[in-house]
Design a protein around this nucleic acid. Structure first.
Lengths: 344, 344
DNA sequence: GGTGGTTACGTCAACGATGACGTAGGAGTG
DNA sequence: CACTCCTACGTCATCGTTGACGTAACCACC
């Protein structure tokens, strides 16, 4: 394989020949199973070292009774997204502790691609998968789950039953954010949200509504903009809101990039010190801006670790009822969320 | 395997039995090879669909002559780091185009861990690896390469020969950044760098020295701080420099987090509009800060794509001489790098 | 001193798939 | 009609490894 060199990896048979034992004995030594004498063990070890033998896990897992590949699949929306990559890292760390490696892919919130990647993962016989479900129907995931593949959904719950899931306190934390703004005296609180097909967007919007209701505020529909995918549309939407005859005095932005877009709009209008802003999802440097951006911070490592733990447990045969773990998010005050409404 | 359900995947043999043909014929149909009549083909396809048959790539690649697993390994320092995850994404995209999936791991710049992960990857018989070499000696990588594993190093070159590598214009871009500061009239330009064991740090430092020399400036060693790992140490170092009797009027920060640390220090002292700053590596929101941060931006997707292309070509048997590809970085002016020195 | 148990091996088949090769039947050719 | 060639299958061994099982040697004990 090496730059055309075509060197083959040594096999157990070759080790066995060199050590003058059977392959079965080599297998015993390599796997540390009983039934090999000390002298033979030494001979086999020496032969393996001499030849540079390394076991072939794929052949091994083909034959073994448990059929484990010691590999799990991770299917997130976009591995270059900070949220997704932090999640991946957390899953990876937990998995490595169990000797499990991670096959990772980005599904770009595209169902066809997600299905394709799922097929690729199953062709490699991964032991289980951790998935961020693409928007819309989840037939492919459901089918895969029905086949018996251990599966944990993260960030968004399944639309089918019998499957573990880890999410954050989307609704409650959004409600709390809105209540905090209301407590400062804000009565016109705008909402900027991501694609409505996303469960998280819906939950955060619901939380926004709950917050308004609980604070005794009435919803002004013209202050709500959703389906903002990326920071550019979010910026445009924010500009529109701020240009209204009776503009919002505070904004709740329900996603990472939407927050960034809103910040750009506020800055462009020179209103970033006058209009309050709370965003969902923390981001690096949020504290270095002026004012610092108040955010709802998800416990991303916690979510990833939990998801990995769940899938590993299922792989190990845990048959307890499906779990929907909710990892609490916290509000981080940095200034932008503490701006009071203009007096008068 | 599913939550203890223990359902087995159907095999070719079962499909063959249902379609009343031999397994070899099923193999032909599944792989689209000639030698199967239309009627038989239809019967096999129907049987496969009925049973929900999915080929086992691991068994297949065990038997096949080319032994390909259609999987490559990616070993970066920290998959949750924005640079690393953007790189991973670029590699993943290019690999997917060739039907190749990615087994990813973080080596945390730890040689022992990197070696361990390398062993795990080889146990799974990956076709090749893309590696960000951990600092210090590269014996493990060298050995793996000697065994014939196709390998491409990214970000940092190998200390051994015969191996492809993709890096950016560390030295030249650093020199240009320093020259730009000098052209504005800066004569006291500080350097803040990451761990000196890293090749990139050394290169960027060399570029700094070249820039000083070319601008006719003499090095003031007390303005150089290296081995800053993370933003906290960088912030402390920047504070020290700014507190000198004759402080720098401009800073060149040679890494992502070091730039962040320097910004914090400048802000804490209220000097972020007076002291010029150019950082190596772009980061999100650099444009939203005040002033915007001027940076040397690497073409991360370009680096990742190139690395993937190289390793895939080697896997396909390309035996041309090893390549050291250098992907150019560009200077992005946002304000902080255009601050002139105080007059007088 | 036979019986039973344990230890240290070996032999064989099988995991799921494919490469090498065999073969029956039909088409084409002289 | 005999011969060749091709197509469409099937048979068998094998990839690297391990589970099931066999067996020879040795020890202990009644």
């Amino acid at each position: 394989m090496g730059q055309g060199a075509g060197r083959r990896e040594p096999t157990m048979r070759e080790v066995a020949a060199l050590a003058k034992v059977s392959t079965k004995t080599v297998s015993r030594v390599i796997n540390g199973l009983p039934g090999a004498g000390t002298e033979v063990t030494d001979r086999v070890r020496a032969a393996a070292r001499t030849l540079g033998y390394r076991p072939d896990l794929t052949a091994s897992s083909l034959r073994r009774s448990d059929r484990r590949s010691a590999t799990i699949g991770v299917l997130f929306e976009d591995l270059s997204n900070p949220f997704d990559s932090a999640l991946l890292r957390a899953v990876e760390d937990r998995a490595r502790h169990s000797g499990v490696l991670v096959l990772a892919g980005s599904s770009e919130d595209d169902r066809a691609l997600q299905r394709e990647l799922l097929v690729s993962l199953s062709a490699r016989r991964v032991d289980g998968v951790v998935v961020m479900a693409a928007g819309g129907h989840q037939d492919a995931l459901h089918q895969e789950r029905e086949r018996g593949t251990p599966m944990v959904l993260v960030d968004r719950p399944p639309t089918f039953g019998g499957t573990d899931c880890v999410t954050t306190t989307n609704r409650d934390s959004s409600r709390d954010a809105v209540l905090r703004l209301a407590a400062l005296g804000h009565r016109d609180i705008g909402f900027l949200g991501d694609r409505r097909t996303l469960w998280t967007s819906q939950e955060r919007y619901t939380g926004y509504l709950e917050g308004l209701a609980q604070a005794g505020l009435t919803l002004r529909e013209e202050l709500v903009r959703t389906d903002l995918h990326g920071d550019a549309p979010a910026e445009a939407a924010a500009r529109t809101l701020l240009g209204l005859a009776r503009p919002p005095t505070a904004l709740f932005t329900a996603q990472n990039l939407v927050t960034v877009g809103a910040m750009r709009a506020l800055r462009a209008r020179g209103e970033h010190r006058r209009v309050a802003l709370i965003g969902f999802d923390d981001f690096r440097l949020a504290d270095l801006l002026e004012p610092g951006i108040t955010v709802v911070r998800q416990d991303v490592p916690g979510i990833g670790r939990k998801a990995a733990e769940l899938v590993l447990a299922r792989i190990d045969g845990d048959t307890s009822p499906p779990v929907h773990a909710v990892v609490p998010a916290t509000l981080v005050r940095r200034g932008s969320g503490e701006i009071p409404p203009p007096t008068g």
